[in-house]
């Protein structure tokens, strides 16, 4: 009976099934956002600046606390800090959403986020 039924399936039926499948696939896809990076800059635990990196027409420098931070389309780095250990400067450019770096002595944290969900919840290092 089922085989007979399958044989009787018309083009219209197939079209209906295809529409439903497309609808379901769209439902599963992550909603909102295209994965563009946003830099969130925290001083003493408070977010003092949020910058959409993808909107940058050119590199931008920000001074937060005693840190000079360079914002670029594809990432962010500590250019200079008044700290003594310079670990933040040695870190180099951070480019991944879900990651964070800090100048501990100046109590400045920079976190990268993206509207597109990261593949992970946290990073161990």
């Amino acid at each position: 009976m089922i085989l007979k039924l399958i044989k009787e399936i018309k083009k219209g039926d197939l079209f209906l099934v295809a529409v439903l499948i497309v609808f379901c696939v769209l439902w599963f896809l992550p909603k909102g956002g295209d994965g563009n990076l946003t830099a969130e800059i925290f001083l003493e635990g408070e977010c003092v600046q949020t910058v959409a990196l993808s909107d940058l027409k050119e590199d931008r420098k920000l001074t937060v606390g005693g840190c000079e931070i360079l914002l670029q389309k594809d990432g962010v780095l500590f250019l200079h800090s008044e700290c003594s250990d310079k670990l933040c400067e040695k870190r180099g450019k951070m480019t991944n959403a879900g990651d964070a770096m800090a100048c501990v002595p100046q109590r400045v944290v920079v976190a990268l986020t993206s509207e597109k969900a990261a593949d992970f919840d946290s990073v161990v290092y």
């Binding site: 870190r91 480019t95 919840d121 946290s122 990073v123 161990v124």
Partner: peptide, 27 residues
């Protein structure tokens, strides 16, 4: 939960991801 493990020679890279229900992870 998914915890990414930092690549030891690429500061913007990851070795992979650990999945766990509850617990502690240190490197």
């Amino acid at each position: 939960w998914r915890i990414a493990v930092r690549h030891p020679r690429n500061e913007n890279g990851y070795l992979g991801v650990i999945s766990l229900d509850e617990g502690f992870v240190s490197t």
